[in-house]
Structures are given as C-alpha cells and as structure tokens.
Simulated assay, not measured.
Amino acid sequence: MTPMLVDPFQRAIRYLRVSVTDRCDFRCVYCMSENMTFLPKKDLLTLEELDRLSTAFIGLGVEKLRITGGEPLVRRGIMTYFNAMGRHLESGALKELTVTTNGSQLGRFAQDLFAAGVRRINVSLDTLDEAKFAEITRWGRLPQVLKGIEAARNAGLRVKINTVALKGFNEDELFSIADWCAREDMDLTFIEVMPMGDIGNEDRLDQYWKLTDLRARLAERFTLTDLSERTGGPARYVRVEETGQKIGFITPLSHNFCESCNRVRITCTGEIYTCLGQEGHSDLRGPLRASEDNGQLETAIRAAIALKPKGHDFDYSRQTVEGRVSRHMSHTGG
C-alpha cells in the first residue's frame, strides 16, 4: 500500500482545498483590492491537470476535497472537473466533494453540482442588507445570491453560510443573520478577518471583531452547547438550544486551531501552501508537467508536506497587524 501523507507533527493530511481560479465576480473588501491584476490564463493549470493533481492527492489518502477560488464557478468549463472528481466518490476513495462559493452562479450550477456528487456547499455572505452587501462586495448583487441559495437548496444541497465578522459593519446583524439561518435550516459559521494581502484603504484592526466577544453576545440571548463535532475544517461548533441550529466559529486569531490542521491548499497555478498563514510554498506544476508518470509529482508532494509548519503567526493582540502574509485570500482560496 502507498504510505499516506503525514506532516512533521504527525498530522495526517486528509483534506485538500483546490483553488481553480484567482478570478472573482465580486471584490470583497477583506479579500481583494478593487483593481486586481489577475493571472494570465496560460499560467493556470488546465482542468485536466487539476484532475490529475487532485487524483494524486486522493491516492495518497486525501478524503475531502473542497473547490475554491476566487469564485470557482466563474472558471469556464468547471463542471468538467467536478464531474471528473465524482468518479472518486463512486469508488469510495473520496468521502466528500464540496465547494465554497459567493453564491452568484448557483442559479446556473446548483443542479449540476448535485449531479456531480456535491452534497454540501459553503456560501460566503456577510450581510442581508442589500446596500451594505453592495458596499462590502463592491460589485455584488444580493438578490442574485439569495436566488442562488434558494436554487441550491431546491437542488438538494445542504447550505452553510460563512460570515466574516466585521466590527462596525455587521455587528448589528448578528441576531438577524442567525435567525435567518435558523428559519431556512442552514448552518452558520462566523470567521475572524485574517491579515492577508494589500487591500488598499481598509484597516485590519478596524475590521477585527473577536469571536469570543461575538459568542458572548449570542450567549446573552441563547443557550449554547459546545459540540465535539468536526467537519474536517477548523470550525468549532455549538448548538443553539432554542432553535436547534448549529453555529461554528473559525478563530485563527483569538484561538488558533493549528494543532489539528489536516489540510493543505493548492493554487490554480499548482503551488502548494501547507499553511494559510505562512508564506512558504512549493511548486507542483513543474513536477506535474515533467512526466506523464506521477513519480516526480508524488515525491514533490511528500517533500512539501515535510515542510508543513506547526502553525501560523496571525496576531492583532498588540494593536498592530502581526503575521501578515502578502498574497490575497483569493490566491489560495481561504
């Protein structure tokens, strides 16, 4: 049997996040600058190369595959890749195929995603106020996203809403967002804003809303019960006893989750980042293209995993932004 992927801290790598494009039809203020320069299309891995690379990781023990971007559903022909990954679900080698999306294209693709074997999706949504949505996304249209979410649910997809907690922006919507998700039977996860990329005039410290404070506000109204449940990602979950809904908290700053990190990220150009919060990365495109045989590729993958750090260095505690990384969130897909 082929030995599985284990990092220097004895964490088995079971979860792969693949960014299929750096492009997006929104320009969220914590993710991108307004005037982004995107990669030339010739620099991107082809859909066939994404298939081969993902398949190599699955052969090395990856069980969960999340497709990200940018906005993954704006990549031309992307369903070819999703359908190709469906064969690994059918074989049992892959336990879950899922996607993180801004929701703008779900009206077009929800049924196709379900047919490919996707059963759960994450939709990034930070406000239910149409004017504020246009402000935070710069280019986005809230009605289009809400219709996309409806299409996803009608197609049989389980939807989880991901909300970045932003001080002074969506603090006043904490309970309305939670109530909406409860009514619509959707899970909800709050995420602390991370110091990634040059985003122009936006101030990270002004944006940062500590999730321990957010949770304390929820606990003023609801009874929260900690859950031991994990979905393969970094979120810690509670059950809201009054509604029965599940709410997650992703806390890279106030309480990091590095000790249980089982995931790595591939960019659309074939770079592997073994930590979202570190600059270190390795090239897999070269070994991928060097030979039709996967020997060089598997050697490169193992060498990259051997460099996986213990954790990230994000820190706002001294009222300065420490541990910042230069690339935008869209480059590695969050």
Rank of each mutant, 00 (worst) to 15 (best):
K160F: 03
C181D: 10
G168I: 06
I177S: 04
G156F: 04
A165W: 07
A155L: 01
T163M: 04
L174S: 13
L174V: 12
A155R: 00
N162L: 04
C181H: 10
L157C: 02
R183H: 13
C181G: 11
F175T: 12
G168E: 03
R158A: 10
A182Q: 14
N170A: 09
K167T: 08
M186G: 15
A165D: 06
D185S: 14
N162G: 01
M186F: 12
A155G: 01
F169H: 07
K167L: 04
S176V: 15
V159F: 02
G168V: 04
K167H: 05
L157Q: 06
T163I: 04
L174D: 07
I177C: 07
L174G: 15
D172A: 12
V159C: 05
M186V: 15
N162R: 03
I177E: 08
M186T: 15
A178Q: 15
E184I: 09
R183S: 10
L166K: 01
R158F: 02
A165Y: 06
T163H: 02
E184L: 13
K167N: 07
V164N: 08
R158S: 06
V159P: 01
K160S: 04
S176M: 13
T163R: 03
N170M: 09
I177W: 02
G156S: 03
S176G: 10
G168K: 00
L174N: 12
W180C: 05
V159N: 03
